[in-house]
């Protein structure tokens, strides 16, 4: 039972990550390889703040949102001047820089040794100690974030984003200030990734830079694409499938040396298959990436 709870918590965290990336990718058509960097920043900021200053949950939440939003806005700025593939490289560069900083700035982050003994979260007076309480917390956050995404989807804000995604030039002619829209959505998406980071850090009680690499970003991208970019339940479905499958492999008893590689091969195959043959994902309806997307 305990282990199932653990799996559910991990799924919950990835749902949050996938939904937030879906906001960025699915609704404004930008591919970001930097999502795990924002995830990592959230985790490290929260871990360090609670360990050094014993700050409360809401303070760290606020800090993470502010930091990630600012960084997100800075990254978006060049996206108007360059094509989408170059934006991908910008996010790649950001991701690598963040990872290396976490890994090399040992005085601050402990480097590759990571940070251990992260204390449990405290919400006002409620100390979240047991797994079940944590599951409850994650559930609440998933619910809130789904609500927020849902609101964004139904809003006029979203219609503008869709217009931007399909045809930037047209959207420009309609007089909408694209820059503000893109910035907002990227800031929101990145902040939510940071929140997932906070939840992760306090759950596992140990973080190291190895959890926040380019491969992790690509994993989250795979979840979004396979589930269906731009759809509401797509990221949820994708997260459940991509998290469960290696766990099943593990129980069937594959030697762990091969299991890790097989898992990555699976992700690679799924990624390529879906991009090339089923770009709308399992239950999406937007054929992501295609030039004349319909």
């Amino acid at each position: 039972m305990d282990y199932i709870t653990h799996i559910l918590i991990i799924i919950g965290i990835y749902v949050i990550l996938a939904k937030s990336l879906n906001l960025i990718m699915g609704f404004s058509g930008l591919i970001s390889v930097a999502h795990s960097a924002f995830y990592g920043i959230g985790a490290y900021v929260s871990a360090l703040m609670t360990l050094k200053y014993e700050s409360s949950f809401f303070v760290t939440l606020l800090c993470v949102i502010v930091i990630n939003s600012l960084l997100g806005i800075i990254l978006i700025i060049p996206s108007f001047k360059v094509e989408k593939q170059y934006f991908l490289f910008i996010t790649f560069a950001f991701q690598v820089i963040v990872f290396n900083t976490l890994n090399n700035w040992i005085e601050l982050t402990g480097g590759a040794m990571g940070i251990s003994g992260i204390p449990p979260l405290v919400l006002i007076n409620w100390k979240i100690l047991s797994r079940y309480e944590y599951l409850l917390l994650i559930g609440v956050f998933v619910f809130i974030i789904c609500l927020v995404c849902g609101l964004i989807v139904k809003s006029p804000f979203n219609r503008v984003l869709k217009a931007i995604r399909e045809d930037e030039v047209l959207a420009l002619t309609l007089g909408k200030n694209i820059i503000i829209y893109k910035m907002t959505i990227f800031a929101i998406g990145s902040s939510i990734a940071g929140i997932a980071g906070i939840l992760y850090a306090h759950y596992i009680s140990f973080i190291d830079p190895g959890s926040f690499t380019v491969m992790e970003s690509i994993f989250i991208i795979s979840i979004v694409i396979i589930g269906g970019a731009g759809s509401y339940w797509g990221p949820v479905l994708g997260a459940i499938l991509l998290v469960l499958f290696p766990e099943i492999l593990r129980f069937i008893g594959f030697p762990s040396s091969i299991a890790a590689n097989l898992r990555q091969i699976l992700y690679g195959v799924l990624l390529v298959t879906f991009i090339m043959w089923k770009p709308q994902g399992l239950i999406g309806s937007y054929k992501f990436f295609l030039r004349n997307a319909k």
């Binding site: 305990d2 282990y3 653990h6 990571g114 140990f206 190291d208 190895g210």
Partner: peptide, 16 residues
């Protein structure tokens, strides 16, 4: 040689 995998391993050993 990875701390995170160690965490997963010990979680499984203790819980499962």
């Amino acid at each position: 040689f990875d701390a995170k995998m160690g965490v997963q391993a010990i979680n499984k050993l203790i819980l499962v």
